[in-house]
Design a protein around this nucleic acid. Sequence first.
DNA 1: TTTTATTTTTAGTTTTGTCTAAATTTAATT
DNA 2: AATTAAATTTAGACAAAACTAAAAATAAAA
Lengths: 215, 215
Amino acid sequence: MTISEENYIKVIYHLSLVSPKGVNTNAIAGMLDTKASSVTDMMKKLSDKDLVSYQKYQGVTLTDKGLHSAKMIVRKHRLWEVFLVDKLGFSWDEVHEIAEELEHIKSEQLINKLDAFLGFPVADPHGDPIPDAKGVIKKIEKQLLSEVEINASFHCVGVKDSSTDFLKYLDKQKIALGSVVKVIDKEDFDDTLTVEIDGKRLTISNKIANNLYVQ
Amino acid sequence: MTISEENYIKVIYHLSLVSPKGVNTNAIAGMLDTKASSVTDMMKKLSDKDLVSYQKYQGVTLTDKGLHSAKMIVRKHRLWEVFLVDKLGFSWDEVHEIAEELEHIKSEQLINKLDAFLGFPVADPHGDPIPDAKGVIKKIEKQLLSEVEINASFHCVGVKDSSTDFLKYLDKQKIALGSVVKVIDKEDFDDTLTVEIDGKRLTISNKIANNLYVQ
DNA sequence: TTTTATTTTTAGTTTTGTCTAAATTTAATT
DNA sequence: AATTAAATTTAGACAAAACTAAAAATAAAA
């Protein structure tokens, strides 16, 4: 598989999680910052390689083979992110771009040794689950902070939006994975939350609460 | 720089160490397993980018800019090799191929953090020197085992040939970097050596001795 | 149910890096 | 010095992955 093919497979995988019935050409083009016509060309190629099942105008889904490939790419991406944060001291908003390159390094032995070196982590620095060597993904139980009951305590376990802006906001507020969050109050008008994070009181917009996973 | 351009620059760098007056088109083609005509095409491109100075039929040399790029690629390659051996437990004959891919990962911050994580090593697992962040290469004093005087003791500090076959031979004989070698005797007829390595007596052909660096 | 709008595909180009085959230049030999 | 051999370059072509513009299919609206 070329790097380009791998990127397509990965994007189809992520879009499939939202629209499992079939992924649109335009959606893929949008994610890869390319044109719909280029996507069509690539779908033919991936279809020939039995990585996707594709029928003209009907959208595309991953075959078993394609799904497995996608999981292996995601596995690599997330393991490298753990490496970058845990071992090299990068912050969680800096690692995505570098992992986008590292995820295309071929050796399976490398990734399994890396996995062991990192202590077989189950989640990346953003709380997203890491597929194991067979592609099995351990589901992480989680709720959005915007949806939990008042007066209960939780742990931060992940982010939905992992954009730099959002991650930097969390850093500024000293919110990290593992932080203890207690919801004190919820404003009826705009769903603004008053929370206590690691003992510190804070006001949080609904948009924030809607992008933070807790358990 | 594309991966292909980087590979050309790297090869020209290595060949320059042997023929500093100018590197031949065919030599480059041989190293990259490509055709002379492809090399010519690429030389034009690299020349346009001021990475090599190239005159038709006259061979090619790296410019200052090209030399610096080459050293940064070599730096990355060798640092990743150290990582693979020291941290992930690969053996020294397994790492070259993987490092060939890793050397093309772009981030400068990544490589400098990796350097620090590894403790700023000065040599890779084969004893080859690692350029620092500025491109400075600390010269490692070394002699070929085939050229040292009899009855003196040395440490293994590197290999000249780093082919899998040779490295596996060394593994089998329990010769590693750091091993203490004492030359007991040299056969006049074919320069076969009798040596003591870490206390164990061993007979070594001239071809072996000619590919092992000691200090 | 037509008509209009949107999405998707086809057809034809472009760029990068490669190739083959032919032409040219340099080096080696007689 | 002339000829042969080797190395190098040019010319033209190809595959991968992208693009633009036009055509076709599907979905939405009147």
